[in-house]
Design a protein around this nucleic acid. Sequence first.
DNA 1: TTTTGAGCGGAGCGCTCCGCTCCGATATGT
DNA 2: ACATATCGGAGCGGAGCGCTCCGCTCAAAA
Lengths: 221, 221
Amino acid sequence: MGDTQTGRPRGRRREADLNDARLMQAAREVFAEQGWDAPVSEIARRAGIGMGSLYRRYPSKELLAQRMRIVGMEQLVTQARTALTEEPDPWAAFARFLRDALSAQGPGGPLLPLVGGRLPATDEIVAAAAQLRAVLDDLVAGAHRAGVLRADFTAADVPLLLEHLTARIPVTDERATALHLRYLDVILAGLRTPAADQPTTLQGPAPDWAELSELWNAPEG
Amino acid sequence: MGDTQTGRPRGRRREADLNDARLMQAAREVFAEQGWDAPVSEIARRAGIGMGSLYRRYPSKELLAQRMRIVGMEQLVTQARTALTEEPDPWAAFARFLRDALSAQGPGGPLLPLVGGRLPATDEIVAAAAQLRAVLDDLVAGAHRAGVLRADFTAADVPLLLEHLTARIPVTDERATALHLRYLDVILAGLRTPAADQPTTLQGPAPDWAELSELWNAPEG
DNA sequence: TTTTGAGCGGAGCGCTCCGCTCCGATATGT
DNA sequence: ACATATCGGAGCGGAGCGCTCCGCTCAAAA
């Protein structure tokens, strides 16, 4: 699935592939900035592509968004796996993943949730969400086992935290990402297990996956 | 300004006053949930008020939002002053203010920024913003002087932090507030001055008031 | 009790702006 | 040079918005 490499296409075929990549990028930017109500024409404009070509590739706005969401989730999974293999220290892996998630995917960060609620949960999305959840569990469990991540923070907190960290603020995209990373640093400092002489506890029950289903479209449980 | 007490109105006049209070509350809820594009009719519906009455009181959607924003800012100023006088400990005052700001004003929290960018900066709003900024400076300066708040965190970070903390997530209003408070706890833990043996620094330059002008409509400088 | 009019609710007008389609122009392979 | 796959964007149909208009309600004056 997701074979963007069909040998080495040339001519018109190659242009179509380029268009597709540009479309995904533009869609992510535009949806990140304006939300679901962003006009499709704005996506086409920013990708430098005509409406006709866009609608030949994706027969509806919804299908375009679905594809974008799946690509985004797969990227997150890849980033998480990279962090797990390249960073031997569990805390470093955890922090690295969050930073990558915020900065790599355009200005809107992962933004899966945003559009998530309005889209039906296709099999493909559910599968991607399950994979993502599994790797988040790994990341969090590793840090817990090492005793560096506060025990009352769960893997289900991660998507919510990312959603909080990608608030849309009226500054340039670049500045917005910088500020998101700044507040991620505050949060990372707050997520270390507190010193024994200064214990703190997080208010309220942790989120559980079931209540995130709308934001997440994952299989519940 | 803001004299809701005109003796003790009776009859039709009293109903109008009640309507006004309900309108402010409904407007805050609806704008918090749906953003600026929320239909005015939804605000009227939730307030239990006809469109006619709404538009007699506020001649346009924009003026309604302006009023709501001013009321919200004044509430924040009051909460900050209360925190400063009732909590002798600077850290407690700082934390108390943030918690109050998130939980007191309906589900959307302060939400000043959200609608802020689209509204012209009237004198009244600029004045309210200036007052708010002054009291935020007090709060942060107090905690800095006591050495409990990390030095690289500034007063201008506060509105941005609040904006990040009020991310709209697809759960009930009550649950959303609970989760906001949960992540506020993480952030508060991360905002204490780090121990000398585990120093951490926040990435990137702190925001300054000028770049928040659109979100804030305060006088720059 | 009757009269009165300020204040109320909500149906609907006019308009903006969206998703999507259609088709002439353009580029590629033979 | 021809045939054809693919491109871009003007325009169509309709959804949904801000706001107005008007018949009704009901507290207060007579």
